[in-house]
Design a protein around this nucleic acid. Structure first.
Lengths: 215, 215
DNA sequence: CGGCATCCGTGACGATACTG
DNA sequence: CAGTATCGTCACGGATGCCG
């Protein structure tokens, strides 16, 4: 019966980095993690936000991730009866890996190529590192033409630190365009300078909005 | 003439993490970086310390990394006239990525499989994060049955933070076996407990050795 | 001997079509 | 909606050969 999975290709090295790459080094795997870090996702949503991945590869990766304890399948019963994929705690622990990749990759962004897909929440990872500390946990909505997502700042312990699901009232709201967002991520533009130049609008009256404005 | 390399396969996503994976997401690339983080290496050395990589893939990766500005070729003129590969500053900036991968992958090490290759310096990355802060820059030699490597602690700015090249007199020396080293990396064993149990020997009289002993 | 280039068999990948 | 089936192509791994 068991079709004897022909043994996933391993580096066969007794090395922590090589073991990590055995688990998540396959093409598309870390990008699936990036998507799931924003919260539970349906198969079709994943396929839509990962342009270029073929259906069978996506299905295979999700199965592998499940078998390795990185993700789980779950049925949601309410009206929107569907199966969603969700990271386990072990899978969510990959956040620092994606953070490091995003920080290193931000300078490679450059100008947007005509073939480049774009989703608003892809800015979440590099952006988080560029925003000032808020002291306490704060939720910031980021609004771009391409979409909206929210960041949870200051509280790195409980679950994913960004998402685009339903949110309560945020502590502040940031309105900007994709190019401004890129300059922020690269560090070429400071939040304060962007606000002064009128390229970034900070909405909100609370202390978090005040900190973001740089006052 | 230009054979028009059919364009390296890209994710075509305007996302910092995806751009990073475009550059270093290919099989073997990050492991080559791991090797070069220890210092300049010859082609043959790389091939020897990356068991399983085929000669053409290694040559192709090195050429890609050179084209992308991650590594350079250099001739060393003295008696050992050979060409060595060396990371550029941009390539060395991948250290946090490998750190994050190593930290995540350490719990996956488990028991050593009979097929697993092992090199002493593969412990350098996860081990660095488990050693106490030394205040000032310190060089620690780590001695295992499989080989020796040294760590530069406390001074993360100047060049690679580990290596196995020729070293001057270290500030301290750590002697242990591979299994003890694994438990240290996983956090299952503290340095102090290992010393008390006689599984780790700390050699040296200076302040760094004293800190490592946990006094 | 170090540093690849070439050839070949296998498997992973990408696109499309189709199904419960 | 959530995949499975099929197929052509390309990347990978292993072995060998060439060349300074």
């Amino acid at each position: 019966m068991s079709p004897r999975q022909p043994r996933r290709r391993s580096y066969d090295q007794y090395c922590a980095s090589a073991r990590a790459l055995d688990a998540v080094g396959d093409r598309w795997t870390l990008l699936i993690v990036r998507e799931l870090l924003a919260g539970p996702r349906r198969y079709t949503d994943l396929h839509a936000d990962l342009p270029g991945v073929s259906t069978d590869v996506l299905a295979t990766r999700l199965k592998d991730m499940e078998a390795q304890g990185l993700a789980t399948r779950r049925k949601i019963p309410p009206p929107g009866a569907a199966t969603v994929y969700e990271l386990t705690a072990r899978g969510a622990d990959l956040l620092p890996v994606l953070h490091a990749l995003a920080e290193w990759g931000a300078p490679e962004l450059g100008d947007r190529r005509p073939t480049d897909a774009l989703r608003a929440h892809w800015f979440a990872l590099p952006l988080m590192r560029r925003l000032p500390a808020t002291g306490t946990t704060a939720v910031v909505d980021v609004v771009l033409d391409e979409g909206v997502f929210h960041l949870r700042l200051g509280g790195g312990d409980a679950g994913p630190a960004y998402g685009d699901g339903p949110a309560g009232a945020p502590d502040a709201r940031l309105v900007l365009d994709a190019d401004t967002c890129r300059e922020l991520c690269e560090g070429a533009l400071s939040l304060e300078a962007g606000v002064k130049a009128g390229r970034i609008e900070v909405v909100g009256a609370g202390p978090v909005a005040t900190v973001l404005r740089g006052d």
